[in-house]
């Protein structure tokens, strides 16, 4: 930390606040996306357990309507952003070397975007 090298001008009101200033935005986004994923999970669980016929027809039928496709896609996009914020927090907390951290963050983005594209492809096949 740079605080140890120039402590005299880094205290009180002179404290240097660094960062990308995405803290509040991500804090809020994490809660909004969580609410979307949570509500989707409950809705899907209730439909699958109570409303749908057992077997392939009933299960695939859930995702046949445009409304459910859009809700599923919405939950998926929320999940991708939620996972990005969460996994990036893990890298920022535990991985200090910048090069490795950048590599892991790039891997995370590619992993999530690939999953998103694949999921859209699956979803619109029904």
């Amino acid at each position: 930390m740079s605080a140890t090298t120039n402590s005299s001008n880094n205290i009180g009101p002179k404290r240097l606040v660094v960062g990308a200033h995405y803290g509040l935005r991500d804090w809020l986004a994490q809660r909004v996306t969580a609410a979307v994923i949570g509500s989707y999970s409950v809705v899907l669980f209730v439909i699958a357990m109570l409303a749908a016929e057992p077997g392939y027809g009933g299960w695939a039928g859930i995702f046949a309507s445009t409304g459910m496709k859009v809700f599923t896609l919405l939950a998926l996009l929320a999940l991708i952003y939620h996972a990005w914020v969460g996994i990036r927090d893990i890298w920022m907390d535990y991985v200090k070397p910048v090069g490795i951290r950048l590599g892991l963050q790039i891997f995370t983005i590619l992993w999530l975007v690939s999953c998103g594209v694949w999921a859209i492809e699956i979803l619109w096949r029904v």
């Binding site: 392939y56 996972a83 969460g86 996994i87 995370t108 992993w111 999530l112 690939s114 694949w118 699956i122």
Partner: peptide, 30 residues
């Protein structure tokens, strides 16, 4: 909370694969 989140992140392709099989056709469902 962290461990479960990371595990689900890594298992995402597996879940998608299962979802793919479950929904593509009667045969893949079987």
């Amino acid at each position: 909370h962290r461990v479960s989140g990371a595990a689900m992140f890594l298992a995402l392709p597996l879940v998608l694969l299962l979802f793919d099989w479950s929904i593509t056709s009667e045969l893949s469902y079987a």
